[in-house]
Structure formats: C-alpha cells, structure tokens
C-alpha cells in the first residue's frame, strides 16, 4: 500500500480551491508515495490544471452524468482504491465529499477521519482533528488499515498553483450508468437580500449567545449597528430560526466577507463560521467563554457579557 490518491472537486465547470489545497496536503505526506489526482469528469482543461507540481498522475474518470452524483463518486473512488491500493485517500471535508467519503471507508473497511486539520507520515499516517467545537484536539492513527480515507478541512492548507506539473494524464475506466441513483434537476441561487454584506467595511455579527428568541429581540442590535455605523450580520442559528435573513449569514453556507472590522458578539467561532470571516482586517470578539475558538481568530477579545458591552458601546457612540 503506497501512494496518495487525491479526489479533486469540481462544480459548475470549475475546480474548487479545495482540490489544490488537497494537493498541498498530499505533498506534505509525500513520504507515503507518489501523488495521483482523480477527476470525476473528463474535461481536459480541468485535468491540465490538476497537473500541478508534485503530482505524478492525473486520472480522469468519465461520469455518466454532468453533475456531482455521490454514488458515482463512491463507485469511482472505490474502484481506484482497488486498482491503486493507495495508503491514503484525500478528499475535502466539503458538502460533496460528505456524500461519499464515509461510504467508501465503510465499504472498503478503510481507516477514516474527517474534518482533519493536520497530517503527518512517519511510516504510517497520523492526523489531527478538532472535537467539541474545536475546544479539544484529537490525534488519530490507523493501525492495521491498508487504506485510510481522510476528509481535509477546507482552508487548512495553502493551494498549490494549478498546472506547471509533469504528471502523466490518462483516462481511467468509465463509471457505468447503473451507478447513478439520484438525479440533478437544477440549481437555485441563494436569496439576494436587501444588503450586500460583502461590500461593507464594518460588520456587527450577532451569534446564538445574544439569546434572541424572536425578531424583536434583535431590534437593539440593529439599532446598535446603525449607531456605530456597522451592517448587522449573524451566525447560522439565527438564520435557521428565521430571525435574520439568510443574505446576512456569514460562513460556509452563507457569505464570505473581508471587512475592515468584524465585531462578533456571542459567536463561538465554529469552523463553518470562521471560514467566512477570518480574512477580516481586524476581528473583535466578545464572548463569556474564554475557551471559545473565536479568540484564536480574533485580534482583540473580551470575556465580558455581550449585552453589557452592547449597551456601553451604544453610549460610547452617542
């Protein structure tokens, strides 16, 4: 068992960044053997981009459908595991891979770890991942497993530049139409809201810690935002509860923002939130839990109660 098999990810005709982050991750464990990148789809342009530094082989696998289909991916990856016996399979901890990664691991009796943030190879694989909302870090090994399927957290590794490689690019065996078990019928773009939060210089973010139970509980925060010249945004739970419009959600399934200042009140800093705001120039976090992971991303922090800080801030701007 040797080598690293990277599963590239494409959507709507373009490769997603995670594909090139995975190539970087694979290069970090190059002692495990040569790097093969698999593209499910046969677009030669995408295959050429995946021919990046460090990659030995790019295998394109013709799919019977034009869109991601989890059972096709599982079949394709499963067959590549049989064919190549890789020591490690790397895919993204992304919505697509959540549809097939664990399936391959279960069927092949492989090792498995998801949302992985570091990898090392020393004759065998060791990985780390966060637990309990990233408050703790777990180290895992995979004794006795011939192949290990790893889903890597997006944004953890820098992207290897596309192209410039010297890989052998070849087609693999097609996946048969019988593998298809669901049908793509269309995409729906996210709702466009009354504000474009990606354009604002200053965002006031409210999290579950604000304890809002109905829309009226949010009025003070809209008022505060207006007073201090910020645009109000939120973490996901407030959007799920229907209290804040989805166009104001920051994070993996919301918007990615990079304002000059991001002031977060009562946001814990789950990775799916951080991924959407960590590029802000200055992040200020107010959270009563000193171990909240948001403090790892913030430049300034306070452990004070957010409602006290909100009141005092209103006064400071009057």
């Amino acid at each position: 068992m040797s080598g690293v098999l990277v599963i590239a990810e494409a959507r709507q005709g373009a490769l997603r960044d995670i594909s090139f982050e995975l190539i970087t991750a694979a290069r970090e464990i190059s002692a495990a053997g040569s790097i093969t990148v698999a593209l499910i789809g046969s677009d030669p342009g995408l295959a050429a981009q995946l021919n990046a530094t460090g990659v030995s082989e790019v295998i394109t696998i013709a799919s019977p459908v034009d869109h991601f289909e989890p059972h096709v991916s599982a079949a394709a990856v499963g067959r590549l595991v049989d064919e190549l016996s890789p020591a490690v399979v790397l895919a993204g901890h992304t919505i697509d891979s959540l549809g097939f990664g664990a399936a391959v691991a279960a069927v092949k009796d492989a090792g498995f770890a998801s949302d992985v943030t570091s990898l090392a190879w020393d004759g065998a694989l060791t990985v780390q991942r966060g637990l309990y909302g990233d408050k703790f870090l777990q180290t895992l090994t995979f004794p006795g497993k011939e192949t290990v399927v790893i889903l890597v957290r997006p944004g953890t590794f820098g992207a290897t530049s596309p192209g410039n490689g010297s890989a052998n690019v070849r087609p693999g065996a097609d996946v048969d139409a019988s593998a298809v078990r669901s049908r793509h019928t269309g995409y729906r773009e996210p709702e466009v809201g009354d504000v474009d939060i990606t354009k604002a210089d200053f965002l006031l973010a409210i999290g579950r810690g604000a304890g809002a139970e109905d829309e009226s509980d949010l009025e003070p925060y809209y008022e505060l935002a207006e007073r201090i010249g910020a645009t109000l945004v939120s973490s996901r739970p407030l959007v799920d509860a229907g209290l804040v419009p989805s166009a104001r959600q920051v994070g993996q399934s919301g918007k990615t923002v990079a304002p000059k200042v991001y002031l977060a009140l009562g946001v814990s800093g789950a990775v799916q939130h951080l991924i959407g705001m960590r590029k802000a120039d200055t992040i200020i976090a107010v959270n009563t839990d000193p171990s909240a992971p948001i403090f790892g991303a913030a430049h300034y922090g306070s452990h004070a109660d957010l409602s006290d800080v909100a009141d005092a801030l209103k006064d400071a701007f009057s």
Partner: peptide, 16 residues
C-alpha cells in the same frame, strides 16, 4: 424531491 445545501448557500435540486 430534495434540496442539497452547498457552499455559499447555493442549492441543488435532486430527485430520487
């Protein structure tokens, strides 16, 4: 007929 929620809030409509 279900919707799968993708990154950035894009939704995919799927039937099975």
């Amino acid at each position: 007929s279900v919707r799968r929620e993708l990154e950035g809030g894009l939704l995919e409509e799927i039937s099975l």
